[in-house]
Write a protein that binds this DNA or RNA. Structure first.
Length: 270
DNA sequence: AAGGATTCCTGTTGGC
DNA sequence: TGCCAACAGGAATCCT
């Protein structure tokens, strides 16, 4: 399930193959993603060189002189650079020809991903409302504290809301709340300033560490070369329901909070 | 306005 | 062993 570290890992892998090049072709094998791929996408993406590959939250931005292709991996999407001779895999929906030797393929079994075209991504309705980047300086505990006053939803739902901060999905939200010692079901408005400072620090540290080892591979995430990420071995609570807490040994609880499976320690997290 | 429920989809898993 | 229902999950969208 790609969260910010997996998307950033993907960005770093594909950028060197795309930047400065004009795709020779864009072939859409199946346009039925989260939203139908607009038929104009191929002509737009082949119109000029891709100047840069950026990331905003979990969106990848392929920028060229006409605008930007917004690529979202959804929950099962991946991008891979391979040889044109490598056989297409099941669920390869989009293919960019890079030169004679390489192709970029978008694979997405569940088709929750997206490829959208926009002439101005900053104004795009999906991107404009997004909150701060967790690894940038404007993401702070004080900001979380202020934004959460009066909020009755759980602190877990609050930090998974992209308007609060981008890129924190179910796995890293659980990990950060454990590291900060905060119970995921606690109302966001009842968490104090100091504890939000701890939480912001935990989010930063965990996402940064995950990026450094290529993300988390649970089942099938791989980078653009097909390699797994190694953060899984650093997970302290996610996927460990019923197993002992690594701090106090109490069996970890597993229950649904914010519509998602959530693992936490009733003793260490309050 | 806020927050919870629903929805899209397919591969994996668990029960019988 | 085989079949099928339940489940997982990002996040927009619907509903209250």
């Amino acid at each position: 399930m790609p969260e910010l570290p997996e998307v950033e890992t993907t960005r770093r892998g594909i950028a060197p193959w795309l930047e400065g090049r004009t795709p020779s072709s864009v072939v859409i094998h199946n346009p039925s993603l989260r939203w139908p791929i607009t038929p104009e996408l191929p002509e737009r993406l082949t119109a000029g060189p891709i100047a840069s590959v950026e990331r905003r939250g979990k969106y990848l931005l392929l920028n060229n002189p006409l605008g930007t292709a917004l690529v979202h991996l959804g929950m099962s999407g991946s991008l891979r650079v391979s040889s044109p001779e490598d056989p297409r895999r099941k669920h390869d929906h989009v293919e960019l020809g890079l030169d004679g030797e390489r192709v970029l393929r978008f694979n997405d079994p569940r088709r929750f991903g997206a490829w959208l075209w926009t002439s101005d991504w900053q104004q795009h309705p999906l991107l404009a409302p997004l909150g701060p980047e967790p690894l940038e300086v404007d993401f702070t505990g004080d900001r979380l504290y202020k934004g959460s006053r009066g909020r009755r939803a759980s602190v877990k739902a609050f930090i998974m809301d992209a308007k609060t901060v981008v890129g924190v999905g179910n796995i890293y939200a659980s990990e950060a709340l454990f590291q900060a010692g905060i119970h995921p079901g606690r109302p966001a408005g009842s968490v104090g300033r100091q504890r939000y400072r701890r939480l912001a620090e935990a989010i930063r540290e965990i996402l940064g560490n995950a990026i450094a080892v290529g993300g988390t591979t649970l089942r099938d995430f791989t980078d653009s070369s097909g390699n797994p990420g190694y953060f899984r071995q650093s997970l302290t609570v996610y996927g460990r329901g019923g197993e002992p807490c690594k701090i106090c040994g109490t069996p970890l609880k597993d229950r649904v909070i914010a519509q998602r499976s959530t693992v936490f320690c009733v003793r260490c997290q309050r």
